[in-house]
């Protein structure tokens, strides 16, 4: 298979995975319709939240990147299988009696799980180790952190991550596709990841305009076109537009271009339906995902959430939303405290 074909396949599979994962906690709407862009946005948020929840403790425990890859492959298989079953639940409900429905669902679940797991693991086993090395090569953050925290163990991050606060964890999610499709790291990050992220950003912006305009199709589409043209024309090296367009594959790019607009989309959903549980779950996942993407999120995310939740609480007169917002911020705020305490702990220890 040519590199172009494998790269295209990686992009399609990554979008499919995001779509399936997004099916686990759908946005929903008053009309009951679930748009593709909202499903992808939910998928992005849950994907990186799960990645963070998986990788952070394993990295803390010093597990090798290769083992982390394999565990992540298993988790992705599980999430995709659950999502497929959830999507087809309505179909099975119509097929027959309850017992039959559950039997079908169980068989389908096991088949999808086995299929996805087998594909992921079979392809990872020969190429996972190479990609572990490539990650260490690409992520200079890992190198710098290990240098600062582990003293003489320069380079030990090649296969293990012994530092308590490991940066660039989101790379592991992206590099997973390098291993699956044997595409070079730079191609994956700067072509597949960049393309998908700019596309996601555009879809989310369109959905935001759609909600802000009271679900009008034409103005929301025109707004999205203006938005994307503005992103390209107004960018400078360090501006938000520049970070998104030129560095969409980086954690900061994803934070600014996808996660913060995604947070706005979640808040707009809550504005319509404050009691919708899925949106509270997504909000919490957004807080966790933010920390995975960038250390900048530990102050950007709480600030963005404050600015969004205040008008929501005032307009809906529901102070309970503040408690939910605090729950969303648990991980970013914990990370802030850890960052403040970490130098103190290192100093005290040594």
């Amino acid at each position: 298979m040519s590199l172009y074909f494998r790269t295209g396949l990686a992009a399609v599979v990554e979008l499919m995975v995001l779509f399936l994962v997004g099916g686990l906690a759908p946005f929903g709407s008053r009309s009951g319709k679930q748009s593709v862009s909202e499903t992808l946005c939910a998928g992005f948020v849950i994907y990186y939240a799960m990645l963070e929840v998986t990788v952070l403790p394993l990295a803390w425990a010093g597990v090798s990147l290769y083992v982390i890859f394999c565990i992540w492959a298993g988790e992705l298989s599980l999430m995709c299988a659950i999502s497929v079953v959830l999507h087809f639940r309505g179909f099975f409900a119509e097929v027959g009696a309850h017992a039959r429905k559950y039997r079908f669902a169980a068989v389908e679940f096991l088949l999808v799980l086995a299929g996805a797991g087998a594909v992921f693991l079979a392809v990872l086993i020969p190429s996972g180790r190479d990609v572990s090395g490539t990650i260490a090569q690409m992520t200079t953050d890992l190198y710098h952190d290990s240098a600062g925290l582990v003293g003489g163990l320069y380079g030990e991050t090649l296969t293990s991550c012994p530092m308590p606060v490991m940066l660039s964890r989101y790379h592991i999610g992206a590099e997973f596709y390098c291993a699956l499709f044997e595409i070079p790291c730079l191609t994956q990050m700067k072509l597949v990841q960049q393309g998908i992220n700019v596309l996601l950003s555009l879809l989310i912006a369109h959905r935001i305009f759609y909600r802000l305009t009271g679900e009008k199709r034409v103005p929301s589409a025109i707004g999205a076109i203006f938005y994307i043209v503005l992103l390209f024309t107004s960018r400078t090296s360090f501006s938000s537009a520049g970070v998104l367009v030129d560095s969409a594959w980086t954690g900061n790019g994803m934070l600014v271009g996808i996660l913060l607009p995604g947070l706005l989309l979640i808040l707009l959903g809550l504005y319509e339906e404050p009691d919708r549980q899925q949106l509270h779950v997504l909000g919490m996942c957004a807080g966790v995902a933010a920390v995975s993407l960038s250390r900048t999120s530990i102050y950007l995310f709480p600030l963005a959430l404050c600015a969004g939740i205040i008008p929501l609480v005032i307009s809906k007169r529901e102070p309970g939303l503040i408690m939910h917002a605090l729950l969303w911020m648990v991980l970013p705020l914990s990370a802030s405290v850890l960052c403040v305490l970490h130098p103190v702990l290192v100093f005290a220890a040594g």
């Binding site: 912006a205 305009f209 103005p219 503005l230 600030l303």
Partner: peptide, 14 residues
């Protein structure tokens, strides 16, 4: 980065 410049311009235009 918190200021949504692009969205302000686009939505203001709409």
């Amino acid at each position: 980065w918190l200021i949504p410049y692009g969205m302000l311009i686009a939505f203001g235009t709409i």
